[in-house]
Design a protein around this nucleic acid. Sequence first.
DNA 1: AGTTTATATGACAATTCCGTCATATTAAAC
DNA 2: GTTTAATATGACGGAATTGTCATATAAACT
Lengths: 112, 112
Amino acid sequence: MSQRLTLQKTDVTAVSLLFNALSNEYRVGIVNLLRTGPKNVGEISDALKIEQTMASHNLKCLAFCGLVTSQRLGKTIEYTLNRETVEPILRLADKHISKYAANLRNCKTLER
Amino acid sequence: MSQRLTLQKTDVTAVSLLFNALSNEYRVGIVNLLRTGPKNVGEISDALKIEQTMASHNLKCLAFCGLVTSQRLGKTIEYTLNRETVEPILRLADKHISKYAANLRNCKTLER
DNA sequence: AGTTTATATGACAATTCCGTCATATTAAAC
DNA sequence: GTTTAATATGACGGAATTGTCATATAAACT
């Protein structure tokens, strides 16, 4: 009896929302910082020299997308990178940029 | 004699611009469509039921980021997916979404 | 050369996003 | 239980992005 497979199709909306989370310098900065290990909000905003509120807003977005997780430690909340997906994605991005999109480095906004 | 390696650091700006290209439904739709093979602009706008102008604008962005390449074939211009980077990235995204971000499917905009 | 077909470009209004401020929540310390 | 420290939330104006329209370019056909 032949088995009916649910063909896993790419969910275009979900994918665009996921990458939207990585389409902002603050969020990529946070994600990149968290590669060095878990940090709380204060440590993140200090390290990246951004306001606490800005860090919080962007962490919320990253958490909603499952790219980071959070855990309260007393008064502080520690954010941890979802390495399983973020590491390979960043490696692919780095490789792509150096091979195919070196010009991206010198452009602030994408003209269309 | 010890060799001086240029440590490849993630370029936060470039990475955010690259993922910005994949942060839009039209562009992810185009990229996903091109997995089935190269297509010209008319075929793309027909298949996705979007206006030609919309297709052109978004193809320009994808091309600038090196995610697609183009080639004129007579009157028509054919766009080809950069499979080398897009395939693994989409596979990672699909896997991440089903494992960590199922809720993304049911949300139009990222609240923050 | 003029017409048609395919695609790209530029501009503008409408929408969405971002940065910041004011305020709320939560836990620890006193 | 009041205060302090850490973080989150909501709101609002300014900035960036998007969708569409008008127009430009480029090749093929007559």
